[in-house]
């Protein structure tokens, strides 16, 4: 079965009911996507399917055959962070980091979809991504900064 993962065509020949998260992590080596609950509650496993955020822990891979999958690995790398990642660096959006890949993917869809920088709207958009470290405020700040087109910049 074929999938388009982070712009590359990939094929998978294992059990069709294997979950997308495990195919990404075990078969494709993309361990950036995390599993926090297996219930579709925490959103740590959020990836984009055809541009929309979904919980990859609740998806058998057969049900997304041929679809376009994007994971955190599609964003940037430590040497060249994406503007959203830069904003997270600048505004303290990541602490322990385990919810971060999922947060980034939900925020990526938000920004691509023309989402606003209003804190209330960002909070609503991120409601499916639990974070236990930050109390969300610095994440909301980070996303707002990215929406406004600012990534990194001068240190305070």
């Amino acid at each position: 079965m074929k999938l388009k993962v982070n712009g590359k065509s990939r094929s998978f020949a294992g059990a069709p009911f294997k979950r997308l998260i495990e195919v990404l992590r075990e078969d494709f080596g993309l361990t950036g996507t995390k599993e926090g609950c297996g219930e579709g509650e925490c959103g740590a496993c959020t990836v984009l399917v055809d541009g929309e955020p979904v919980n990859s822990c609740l998806i058998p891979v057969c049900s997304v055959e041929g679809r376009r999958i994007e994971t955190v690995e599609s964003l940037g790398n430590p040497g060249k962070l994406s503007p959203l990642q830069e904003a997270f660096m600048e505004r303290g959006g990541a602490q322990c980091g385990i919810c971060t890949p999922g947060m980034l993917m939900t925020a990526t869809a938000w920004i691509k979809g023309g989402g606003s920088a209003a804190p209330g709207a960002i909070r609503e958009c991120l409601a499916g991504n639990l974070c236990r470290c930050t109390g969300y405020q610095h994440i909301v700040d980070s996303v707002a900064r990215a929406v406004k087109g600012k990534g990194g910049g001068k240190r305070r």
């Binding site: 979950r19 297996g38 219930e39 579709g40 609740l58 998806i59 058998p60 057969c62 049900s63």
Partner: peptide, 27 residues
Amino acid sequence: PLAGGTDFMVLWNLGLLNGRTILDLSG
């Protein structure tokens, strides 16, 4: 029958539904 799977997969992840036949409606 499996549609979005948002409920079924929660129980499946707990190992409660192994060995079933699934009618995957995604196609």
